[in-house]
Design a protein around this nucleic acid. Sequence first.
DNA 1: GCTCGGGACA
DNA 2: TGTCCCGAGC
Lengths: 362, 362
Amino acid sequence: MLEARLNEAATLKRLLDAIKELVTDANFECNEEGLTLQAMDNSHVALVAVKLKASGFKRYRCDRPIPLGVNIASFTKVLKCAKDDDVCILKANDDADVLSLTYEARNTDRIAEYEMKLMDIDADTLNIPDTDYDARVTMPSSEFGRIVRDLSLLGESVRIEVSKEGVRFISDGEAANGNVLLRDTQASTRKGGSSSKQEDAEEEDEPEEEEEDEDKPTKKKIKKEKVKKEEGEGKGEEDVEMNGDGEEDDEQEFKPKGEDDEEDEEEESSSKKRKKAPAKNAKPSKKAKKDDDDELPEGVKVEMNAHVNLTFSLKYLVNFSKSSSLSNVVQLMMSNDVPLLVSYEFGQGHIRYYLAPKIGDD
Amino acid sequence: MLEARLNEAATLKRLLDAIKELVTDANFECNEEGLTLQAMDNSHVALVAVKLKASGFKRYRCDRPIPLGVNIASFTKVLKCAKDDDVCILKANDDADVLSLTYEARNTDRIAEYEMKLMDIDADTLNIPDTDYDARVTMPSSEFGRIVRDLSLLGESVRIEVSKEGVRFISDGEAANGNVLLRDTQASTRKGGSSSKQEDAEEEDEPEEEEEDEDKPTKKKIKKEKVKKEEGEGKGEEDVEMNGDGEEDDEQEFKPKGEDDEEDEEEESSSKKRKKAPAKNAKPSKKAKKDDDDELPEGVKVEMNAHVNLTFSLKYLVNFSKSSSLSNVVQLMMSNDVPLLVSYEFGQGHIRYYLAPKIGDD
DNA sequence: GCTCGGGACA
DNA sequence: TGTCCCGAGC
């Protein structure tokens, strides 16, 4: 049985708002670690992976794994009946065909109970590969949203280029072309140096690595810092295949580049990182500006060990950017010819999107 | 001739917004007491009764009764030409076929005059029965709106149950069921079971009556406190018949339960009330929280002398709830098998809706 | 605070 | 399908 008490229904509401246009039905998988959801979008171009960690709940109990097959539209409706600051309690029995939601107003004068029907959904548990990326861009989620919305006015797709000068978003449209360049705000402040592992620690000594990279292009550094994704662990029944747009069959399949190489060897440094990383973006909402350096409020961080040049459909990126309500910060992880990972980390978990690049440069 | 000067055009604008989807044409009846409008909705399921008291106008003069037959859509258009804080002057001659509206900006720099054509409308002056209700729920109008809008996402109708635990709104839908429970916020604070009396009493001196009720469940108490509706007085040419939904002919007809009984006997106590009651909810807009007890800002009051269990079409309730712009507080008056009365009192008058319950429990 | 876009309702 | 209302962005 599942029983989870979420302090603010708003988290769930925003999550569903973020995915409702991408996914129609999906399983929320509950286990002792929390809730996860993985689904391809309806046209199989994008993949969305959500995690709500058990620790993100005020109270969480799940005796054994339960798949909750929900219709996203229904779930969205039911969640709309919650006020943002309601306490939200989710309950389901092991064999449940309904999910029970209770919303308690802060003053407890109002208690609302809903029961949503569940459905059996073919558990295409997707195996999301753990990829090492050649470039990672960390920026305010609002800025990312702004850029893709702006560029989507001009054209259908955006080319994202990461070079030592920073990250550049380029759109060619009928009537106008545009490009937006973001420099690494820290690199400019601080020169020299080998930054890598400290990045969380302080964005303060990071500049160096970039320089190193320049000198000896190795993948080492970013690998060390890579964010590992474990959602698919142990379930990889089915590898994900993303058909970029339905028109282009030669778009990138969703396969890891170097699937397991160096995995273990990196484990230690990355695990160290991993511990800190969640904490980094752990304050999703209001703390915003002038927080610790960790969140690099307002800042842009560009990490790269190889130039990256990829083209994506703006429609999807605009859609992804709806998640900015969940986190002030977004990370874009890219390698040439593999799907882009757009990741929003927030206090209770994360939401990640994978989007296959367009191949034809169109 | 009619000449009425309203301090804020906003009142009229909101009133028309509140009814424009329910009614297409109706007579505004003007007499020395003020303006009233009564109309069935187009499908004869709901009835709306509006009153603008003469005393609510900055200046009011009406020599003799005049029916102003207006097309609601036209009236709405004309009123849209007024700014919310314009002074609005209505004028009509006794035999008028036009209604003249003048909007004066606060600074009198702008004066706009409109003349709207009137029409002859069959004066189906409706006889609204004066009913004693078994339950009365007083709550923030915004909350009422929220609840019916929420539940309308799930299903077509709502069952409203008033019991000693409070009032419960229950909806069964295809994809999900939901119910919202509101407790009497004063009952918990103040014990004595009968929360009621204090409500007004505090303000006036009526508390005792409610307690009595508790002890000996009689209908007296609410009767005493009942809000009387006199709009139909002296005109009852035609009794109203509401066909619940057009599908169900066996829905409640709009007939008073005990049509005239006790009318006079109640008159005195109710008239006392009546004088005070208007003052109670007389501050429609911003005073909100922390006003007198009268408005019970944010509070929910549930008064009952018999359990009530009724089902209504959410579509109509959602429509009624548009009147929340007119008052922060709404009252629901219910008895089993008789139409629900939804009442918004504001400084200048009131708007009341009557809705026949669904009988089949569907 | 105003304008634009998206969603819901008529 | 068009209009109105609500929310988000500028």
